[in-house]
Design a protein around this nucleic acid. Sequence first.
DNA 1: CACATGTGTACGAAAAGCGTACACCGTGAT
DNA 2: ATCACGGTGTACGCTTTTCGTACACATGTG
Lengths: 261, 261
Amino acid sequence: MSPTEEPSQSPHYVKSAEKTLAVLLAFTADNPHLTVTEVAAATHLTRAAARRFLLTLTDLGYLSTEGSRFALTPRVLDFGAGFLAGLDLPKIAQPHLNDLALDLDESATLSILDADDIVYIARAAAPRLHAVTVNLGNRLPAWATSMGRMLIAELPETFQQQFLDRVEISPFTDHTVSSAAELGKELKKIRVQGWCLVSQELDDGLRGLAVPVRRGDNTLAALNVSLHTSHLRGLSIENDLVPRLQKVAASIAEDYGGRAE
Amino acid sequence: MSPTEEPSQSPHYVKSAEKTLAVLLAFTADNPHLTVTEVAAATHLTRAAARRFLLTLTDLGYLSTEGSRFALTPRVLDFGAGFLAGLDLPKIAQPHLNDLALDLDESATLSILDADDIVYIARAAAPRLHAVTVNLGNRLPAWATSMGRMLIAELPETFQQQFLDRVEISPFTDHTVSSAAELGKELKKIRVQGWCLVSQELDDGLRGLAVPVRRGDNTLAALNVSLHTSHLRGLSIENDLVPRLQKVAASIAEDYGGRAE
DNA sequence: CACATGTGTACGAAAAGCGTACACCGTGAT
DNA sequence: ATCACGGTGTACGCTTTTCGTACACATGTG
């Protein structure tokens, strides 16, 4: 975000670590099969350096090679698995999400904040959903999503202000908010009412409804259901759905007897 | 596996890369919050070295610190996300899995082989399942699971033999196989019949039924449904379920028009 | 109170990784 | 045919990075 972003903050900085991860992250959805030079270009490493890292990662089993192209192996999932396994919340929430998804016939998702993004930590797909489902670990800009706004709204005022100062609102499809100031007003409203509705939150005719999962004073996560505009069988959002979601959120929080963390 | 496993194979080996990943993997399910010394112990690094890596990873946003303990942040999911996004199969298979899970009221899973483990790459939970669900990226020993056996059985003879030579069968709960020789016989049978049933595949009274997802000559993945022993509404495994699964597997393979890879 | 065990810091020594430079191989244009 | 190009892998002296010991401090337990 900042113009000259040099991440060599701490005096004990292991540059190789950064490079290692950069190489792994060079493999993206649109470009899953990369050559040495492509990786070198993507990571700003020398071709020789990139090659060293690629070979090392291959030896370690995180990359596979096919001809002169490299690709990620399933083993890279281990990192995320370690994180998810350490969290109790997804395990506990899953049955509740399943119920909700089955009952409403809409996808239900649980997410938390990481930097200025939300990250999906648990999800139940709508049974009748015959489309591409967004997967665990997916990352979306907080300001643009119902869960993100809900989570930001739950933050202390100071953090919220800092967020508003640095957020860059790109003209997405959402028509209700187009500036940081507007978003600030929206956040106030959300905080007061305790839930958040975002229309056209991703590009299709989709709406997202989110409520916080609170345990005592702190917010553990945000719970969301997608709402196909066409598919609201006479249910009122404010009178039917919000209470329903809040009840589920409460159940999750209750089941979550674990560490406060 | 081998007694003296020194992974410094290639002459261009970046040791820091290995260390970086080792530090990330030090965080396990039972020990998600670690101190510097704990990490040092787990990774066989000096305390100073461990600290350097921990600080670096914190700077990069992959670790968070709480007092003097470190923990993974959601960002580690990025690595796995990159892999999953690169695969077309999960996206394509998901709706089929959802259908299957909804129809049978049992969990449906898709997995592939990585080394001697299977890794879940897509999954639909049984709607009525109120238990802990196993998540994406989970890793289980191939020999012990229906999908694993199915995938091994699909391998060429030579690979299969190599696998049998090195596999270590621990006395799990499964009663049907207790030695590599028996497993070999079982694999032959599986290969011929084209499906695989494993009883008590994990410790509860659960069975797993798997079929291959084939596209042309090569096997893309294994498809599986769990079978609660109590919960077979008069359906015959061989006459009802196997054909059903095979049909779904065929649909998935058909939808998967993508690259041969 | 001492002792064990945790924490962070510093700095000289050692080694690890760097990246240039070179050789090769296929493809496509000239 | 051959030349230029863009890709590949390899080698090795130089520089930088990383190592890990050693020290100083904090904490809590016997």
